[in-house]
């Protein structure tokens, strides 16, 4: 498999972890309760840890001159290949939980397949991450139920988030050219095959949470090709601030 193709394939997975980790870490200190704050930070730490494993692998593939930080901080917006879902802002706790749940359900299915990758490093990263992400999914689906079947106010708020974020779920199952190549070589996961199972899991949980599943014909996509929402620029200006302001320094 061509190196560049493999690298692009990895970005398609790793950038999701980076951007979602970044979003979650913005919350630290502002959660509804200390306990919840600590829990969300744990998920952020898991995701950023996974990001580092992927990026270190990419750095190794790219040759000596590139570091995990170059990859994390010094690409242009179009070069980040995360899905639109994970870059959506922390409007309120309902959004945070819904975004998390929509991603966790996909993430776990993805990792369960990725552990069978012919690429040993990817397989090893996936095996480790499965344990973390199983916990994330448990956490976020428990909370979806609490918010959905909690009070009238919480049901409205989380329903609002579900309605807004649903349109970003379909992109998860889109295959880029890089993905297709990786699948053919037994390195990558054919995410389109995960779709049915995903919607089954998501719908079951939403139903249990007494939430209404939106009926949508049009879904948003673009992130996987590097065409992001307006939120992404602001996120990156925070993320990249130091590396851009003080180039070529050690921290």
């Amino acid at each position: 498999m061509k190196k560049e193709n493999l690298i692009q394939y990895i970005y398609g997975i790793a950038d999701n972890a980076l951007i979602l980790g970044q979003r979650l870490s913005e919350l630290c200190g502002h959660g509804p309760n200390l306990e919840t704050d600590i829990a969300c930070t744990n998920m952020a730490l898991d995701l950023l840890g996974q990001t580092r494993s992927y990026y270190q692998y990419v750095a190794q593939l790219s040759g000596e001159k590139v570091s995990e930080d170059d990859i994390a901080f010094l690409r242009t917006e179009r070069q980040y290949k995360n899905v639109l879902l994970v870059e959506q802002p922390n409007n309120h706790f309902g959004y945070i939980i819904t975004r998390q749940f929509f991603y966790d359900a996909f993430h776990l299915l993805l990792l369960q397949e990725l552990q069978n990758s012919k690429d040993e490093t990817l397989s090893a990263i996936a095996k480790k991450a499965i344990k973390e992400v199983s916990y994330h999914q448990r956490f976020s689906s428990d909370w979806i139920k609490r918010l959905g079947d909690g009070t009238e106010v919480s049901r409205q708020k989380v329903q609002e988030a579900v309605n807004d974020l649903w349109k970003f779920t379909d992109e998860l199952f889109q295959l880029t050219e890089y993905d297709k190549n990786a699948v053919e070589l037994g390195v990558g996961v054919d995410v389109s095959l995960l779709k049915e199972k995903y919607y089954q899991i998501v719908k079951e949980t939403l139903e249990e949470a007494t939430l209404i599943i939106p009926e949508l014909k049009w879904f948003r996509k673009g992130g996987k090709e590097g065409v992001h929402s307006e939120h992404m620029g602001y996120l990156l200006s925070d993320l990249q601030y130091m590396q851009r302001t003080y180039p070529n320094m050690k921290w």
Binding site: N33, L34, E35, I38, A39, N42, R138, F139, D142, R146
Partner: peptide, 20 residues
Amino acid sequence: SLRAADEEMALENARDVYTR
């Protein structure tokens, strides 16, 4: 000790708070 609304949450919070 810690605060939690239900037993599931209490277990999860305990994991997150006391076994980091």
